[in-house]
Amino acid sequence: MTAMLLKMQMGWGETLKTSIVGLLVVIAILAVIAVLILLISKIMGAATKAFSKKKPETEPVKETAAPPAAKPAGRELPETESQGTLQLENVDEPTAAVIMAIVSNQSGIPLNRLAFKSIKLIEEK
C-alpha cells in the first residue's frame, strides 16, 4: 500500500491548482456560513421586534436586558474603565483585566457601568 502510494506523484500545475482551489473552497464555504449568520441575526432581530411590538404588556423581563447600574459619580467613565475600587488577591492585573472584560462581554453591560469589588484566586493548581 505504502509503495503504491509512494509511486503516485503530482505535477507542479496540478499541485498548485489543488492548493489554490482548496483554499478558495474553505474561504467560500466559510463565507457562505458568514452570510447565513447575518441572515439569521437579521431574521431574529426582525422577529424579536415584531414580537415585542405585539405584546408589550405581557413581555417578561428580557434575558439580555442589563440590570440597572448606579450612575457614575463625578465624571463620565470611559468604556475601558470600571467603577469603584477593585481589590486583587493573588491575581495579577492582566488576568483581572481579562476576567472583567469577559464579564462585561458576556453580560452585555459596558465596563464603565460595572463595579468589581474583589477578584481572588481560590485554588492554586
Binding site: 489543488t18 492548493s19 489554490i20 482548496g22 483554499l23 474553505v26 474561504i27 464555504i29 466559510l30 463565507a31 456560513i33 458568514a34 452570510v35 449568520i37 447575518l38
Partner: peptide
C-alpha cells in the same frame, strides 16, 4: 461573522 474569513485565511499553511 467576519471572523469566519479570518478562520479561512488561517488555513493558508495547509496548502
Amino acid at each position: 461573522p467576519v471572523s469566519l474569513l479570518l478562520g479561512a485565511a488561517a488555513q493558508l499553511g495547509i496548502y
